[in-house]
Computed example of a mutant assay.
Amino acid sequence: MALSVTACSGPGSGSHDASPSPQTVEAAPSTGTRGSRIEAEKSALLDIYKRYWTEQVKAYGRASDRGTDLQKYATTQALSRALSDLQGLKASHRVLRGVPQHDAEVTSIGLDKKVPDAKVTDCLDVSDWRTVTSSGKTLPAPKGVLKRYVAVASAEKWGSRWMITKIDTHGRAC
């Protein structure tokens, strides 16, 4: 079973630590210098991105978004893609085990727009994310599929918080 990009990224912004708490992360207030505001917004966005992947890994590990906070961090195409992947996993009686890793950075941010937006570029490493059947059998990864590749997440700031809206892969190794 081939999953879309949502099955290919990890739970942290370059870190391999435990899952963060599901509390809401608010963006930084607009006080201070423009440079410090941009850095605070980038930090808030990377935190949301990390939480998005943490919740997605949790959901893919049980083939259900029940009991996760996936919808707190993703919307539109990113959420639809994840929910579609979950339907596929559930229908095929499979889950994903392991923890993919990534190295993410904010590569663009537009704060002076009516709806601020940003891009996060990530090098996803899915070599430790395995498909497991309901009988516990680990399935081999399809031949020729990249285990480390570039993905770009689009995000928008809705009110005082960032939301992941779209994930694109570019079919190139990183």
Rank of each mutant, 00 (worst) to 15 (best):
P22M: 05
G12I: 01
Q23T: 13
S30C: 11
T24W: 05
S21W: 05
G35Q: 11
P11D: 12
I38Y: 01
S21C: 10
S30K: 14
G32V: 09
S15A: 07
G35P: 07
A44P: 13
H16E: 07
T33Q: 05
S13E: 01
A27P: 07
V25S: 08
P11V: 05
E26N: 12
R37M: 07
A40C: 10
E26M: 13
G14T: 00
S19G: 13
A40M: 03
G35F: 15
L46Y: 00
I38H: 00
H16P: 04
E39F: 09
S30L: 15
V25D: 02
T31D: 08
G12F: 00
A40E: 04
A27T: 04
G12N: 02
T31L: 08
A44M: 04
A44S: 12
E39Q: 13
G35K: 12
L45T: 00
S21D: 14
A44N: 04
T24Y: 04
E26V: 14
S19A: 15
S13C: 05
S15L: 11
G32P: 12
R37K: 03
S13M: 02
T31A: 05
G14L: 00
P22C: 05
E41C: 01
I38D: 00
Q23P: 14
V25C: 14
K42S: 00
T24N: 09
I38L: 06
R34L: 08
P22A: 10
A28V: 12
T33M: 11
A28G: 14
A27S: 09
R37Q: 13
A18M: 02
H16S: 12
S19M: 13
S19V: 09
L45D: 00
P22F: 09
Q23I: 04
S13L: 00
G35R: 12
P22N: 08
L46I: 02
E41Y: 06
A40F: 02
S21V: 08
S15W: 13
S36G: 08
L45V: 00
A44R: 03
L45M: 00
S21I: 09
P29N: 01
A27H: 01
D17R: 04
V25Q: 09
T33I: 10
H16W: 05
A44C: 10
G32Q: 14
P11A: 06
P22H: 04
P11S: 14
V25P: 11
E41M: 01
T31V: 06
E39L: 15
T31K: 08
E41F: 03
L45C: 00
G14M: 00
H16N: 11
S21K: 12
A18Q: 10
E26Q: 11
R34F: 01
T33S: 13
T33V: 09
L45W: 00
L46M: 07
P11Y: 12
E39S: 11
S36R: 15
Q23N: 14
P20M: 09
P20C: 06
A27C: 06
S13A: 13
R34Q: 11
I38C: 03
R34N: 08
T24G: 08
K42W: 02
A40I: 07
S36T: 15
I38M: 05
S13T: 05
S13P: 09
